[in-house]
Computed example of a mutant assay.
Amino acid sequence: MNVKVLLFSLLPITANAQGFAGLGTAAEGFSVPQPGYAFAFPADHGAHHDYRIEWWYLTANLQGPDGTDYGLQWTLFRSALAPEAGSGWGTPQLWMGHAAVTTPDNHYVSERLGRGGIGQAGVTADPFSAWIDDWELSGDWTNMQMAASGADFAYDMNLTAQGPLVFHGDAGFSVKSAEGQASYYYSQPYFDIAGVLTLPQGDVPVTGQAWLDREWSSQPLGANQTGWDWFSLSFDDGAKLMGFRLQQTDGDHYTSATWIAKDGQATPFADGAFQAVPLTTNDHGVPVRWQVTLPAYGVDATVSAVNNHAWMATSVPYWEGPVRVTGSHNGRGYLEMTGYE
């Protein structure tokens, strides 16, 4: 969302940290998102060191020549110990990368950890480049290149944007709780993507569509929020839907959504308009089939995982994988779920 699985595994969080992965802890000394922010590009594609947490998060639905479905993830997270860039080994900026490839039968995952200030990881805005070690996402946000690798997979991809940036919430100010915690959040959900997956069985040329999320904040969750379920769905008629459900200790949920028309026009929905109800869980108790509704646009659809076992066994574990949509709307997308470990 993405409010994504973040870098607090790298920080000295105590057992009493509030919110999922400490994301509900107070943001003393850091900037906090406010309504009315004037986005400026290309600067806002880059890092915001005065905010505590930030990410560049891409997911893609792909197909091979024989029609096999694949999912792909590339993510770079930034987390700060102090609200400054710093330099060398003294920088307070910590970085974590996640890369994954999902097939109908397997889920390949790799993680990288890095320190900013020594060239190992970072982001530049102009020209745009996000990297950790030899993983990189770069380009002008119209034409991009992306690469990553793990012990048993690799990929090298080209991306071309076919639509505009989309801003979630109130012109990019995305509220996450009844108490008002928020982030700045925008997406590029219109990438065509093509390239080569390298898997244990060999190279596979693939094509498909990708969705890139940008988000930053300092305290995006409430203290009582224990995880989330995030959906990015692309329908066959050209419309798209981003929706998330934040879990709370009282058993209730906070929701938010953005309906994206075929021409890129975004309509935000506040808490309660979007609903996601689990229908089926896998053998580890993680929901892998959902009923998703947004009555304002007639959405009443079933969202089902391509691979039920797309578990990210990373420093902060979560489920992330491609999904298929059937019902009132048909299509494909991605699902991320945290708080189920």
Rank of each mutant, 00 (worst) to 15 (best):
T267C: 05
L246P: 06
T280L: 15
Y254A: 02
A257E: 02
D250K: 09
V277N: 08
G272N: 04
L246F: 11
N282P: 10
F274R: 04
G285P: 14
H284C: 14
Q265W: 05
S256F: 01
A257N: 03
D283M: 06
D271V: 07
D283T: 11
K262G: 15
D263Q: 15
T255D: 06
A276W: 05
Q247A: 11
R245M: 06
H284G: 13
D252G: 14
A273K: 04
P278R: 12
G251V: 12
G264A: 09
A276P: 14
Q265H: 12
A266S: 13
D263H: 10
T281W: 03
Q265G: 09
A257D: 01
T267L: 05
K262R: 11
N282G: 14
P268H: 07
R245Y: 03
V277I: 08
D252N: 14
T281E: 04
A276V: 06
D250S: 05
P278S: 14
F274W: 08
D252M: 13
L246C: 06
D250G: 11
T280R: 13
Q248H: 09
I260A: 05
H253Q: 15
A257M: 01
F274T: 04
F274N: 01
A276D: 03
A257G: 06
Q247R: 14
D271N: 09
T249D: 11
T280Q: 06
Q275R: 03
K262S: 14
H284R: 14
D263G: 08
W259T: 00
G264M: 07
T255W: 02
T267I: 09
F269E: 00
T267F: 12
Q248F: 11
T267D: 04
P278Y: 08
I260K: 08
G272E: 05
L246Q: 15
A273Y: 01
F274H: 03
Y254D: 07
N282S: 09
T258W: 02
W259A: 00
F269L: 01
D250E: 07
G264Y: 11
G264R: 08
H253A: 11
D283F: 04
H253M: 12
S256A: 12
D271T: 09
T280P: 07
Q265E: 04
L246V: 14
P268C: 03
G285M: 08
D271M: 09
A261T: 05
Q247T: 08
T280S: 03
A273E: 01
F269R: 02
T280N: 04
D263W: 13
F244M: 03
Y254G: 01
F269C: 01
D252E: 15
L246W: 05
W259L: 00
A273D: 10
A266V: 13
L279S: 10
V277C: 13
Q248D: 10
T249H: 14
A270C: 01
Q275F: 02
A266G: 12
T249M: 10
H284M: 15
D271R: 08
T281R: 11
G251D: 03
Q248M: 10
Q275I: 00
A257Q: 02
T258S: 15
T281N: 12
H284P: 15
T280G: 02
G272Q: 06
S256Y: 01
F244R: 01
G285S: 09
G285T: 04
F274S: 09
T255R: 03
D250R: 13
T280E: 12
T281C: 04
R245F: 05
Y254F: 11
N282A: 03
A266P: 11
G272S: 06
Q248L: 13
T258D: 08
R245I: 06
F244V: 00
I260N: 02
D283K: 09
Y254M: 04
